Simulated assay, not measured.
Amino acid sequence: MQKGQVHGFKRERIELEPCSICTGKAVVMGLFYELVCTECSGSGWVVLGSRLVLSLDDLVTQLSFKLQQAEREIAALKGPTKVVGPQRQYKISNRLGAGGTNYTGD
């Protein structure tokens, strides 16, 4: 076995989808007030394709995986934007002005 192929030490990623009954909201509207959705046990998520409900321990782990993935995607979208073109001299300080301020030549 190679170094990265150790079985049993890595949690399986289970694909989740929003519950079809509550549409991922975890509650359904009763006659007078909201009730906890019984199809997804109030989580709003079920296993993709089979619509099985995960145990609370597994659900917490899988939701943590989804949150970490979403945070990585957000960080990638917010990443440093490279300023190009004429606006570069206004956005990045060149410290050539009086007192080390930005000098743009205007």
Rank of each mutant, 00 (worst) to 15 (best):
V53Q: 10
T61F: 09
V47G: 04
N102P: 04
Q89C: 09
K3T: 14
I74P: 09
Q68H: 14
R11Y: 09
L48M: 08
F32Q: 13
E73K: 15
L31E: 09
G42P: 01
I74A: 12
R51E: 12
E15C: 04
K91C: 06
Q2N: 13
L31T: 05
L63P: 08
G99I: 02
L35F: 08
A75C: 13
A76N: 09
D58E: 07
H7V: 13
Y90S: 02
P86R: 05
F32I: 00
L67I: 12
K25V: 08
Y33F: 13
G30L: 12
W45A: 05
G85R: 06
L56H: 11
V6Q: 07
V46S: 01
T101E: 04
I14H: 02
T81E: 15
A70T: 12
Q68E: 14
R72G: 15
T101M: 06
Q89S: 09
S41G: 11
G42F: 08
K78L: 15
G79H: 13
V36F: 07
F32N: 07
L52A: 11
T23G: 06
S93N: 05
F65A: 09
L35C: 09
T81G: 15
K10L: 12
Q2D: 14
S50H: 06
S43F: 02
L67T: 07
Y33Q: 14
Y103M: 01
E12A: 15
K25L: 07
A76D: 15
R51P: 00
G8Q: 02
V53P: 01
T61W: 08
Q87K: 03
Q89A: 13
V6L: 04
L77Y: 13
E15D: 11
K10W: 06
K3S: 05
K91L: 03
D57F: 05
V36P: 08
R51H: 14
Y90M: 04
I92R: 07
K25M: 10
T101G: 02
Q62L: 06
M29R: 15
Q68D: 13
Q68A: 15
R95P: 07
V46H: 00
